[in-house]
Amino acid sequence: MNVLPTDPAARAAVRQGVSVSVATGLYGISFGALSVAAGVGLGPTMALSLLMFSGGSQFALIGVIGAAGTPVAAIATATLLGLRNTLYGAVVSPLLQVRGWRRIAAAQVTIDESTAVAVAQPDPAVSRIGFWVTGLGVYVLWNAFVLLGALAGDALGDPRAWGLDAAAAAAFLALVWPRLAPRRAQLVAGLAVAATAVLIPFVPPGIPVLAAAAVAIVVGLVAPATVPAEAPSEPAGDTPAEPGTESDREPAR
């Protein structure tokens, strides 16, 4: 493997980036198939993957469209879900130290996976390697497999027969799982489940998700800075631990 850097830490970062890229990229097949099945054609499906490039937002948008939701609900849901990438950008920006068009490229590949691999590395130089290998690797493979899934969508038939609807639900569960450790997150999750389940029969698709977000905003604004019961388990506060929490799972493999 002459292409790998000689520094062991850099080699580890490259390996993590490649394995996360392959795992995430493969999942693009189900997005491509589900998006076409939801009535989003091949062109808009690829535009979403290439331009939006944020799995949660992409699934949310086609979910609202597939459920005959309004454009405003679809845009709002996808945008709110993309809000966490702002936080990730602020976290990785000091590590990357880039300007101009490279900063544009870095912003576009700032997602869960690239941030998780970047922050898991021992020093900024290795973080940069981890970020770019993961970000560009996921970008290329995700879009390639979305195209494959979208083209094979008709041949696959009903995505439900393949369990792809359950796969999407499981993917959201897997994304939220490592974030549920703090007590306050569990409280918000419980309220979000209740708000969503209560509203689904009564309001247009997409609105229950926004209502759940509104509940979280209210809790975040009115809650005290630290809940005494959870202080010992998360001395660093909620946010700095977030990307690291995820990185504990994925790139460690």
Partner: peptide
């Protein structure tokens, strides 16, 4: 708020999906 909104959105999407 950002952290909690992400949790709420993902959990809500699990319920919807």
């Amino acid at each position: 708020v950002t952290t909690l909104v992400t949790v709420a959105l993902l959990v809500s999407l699990v319920v919807v999906q």
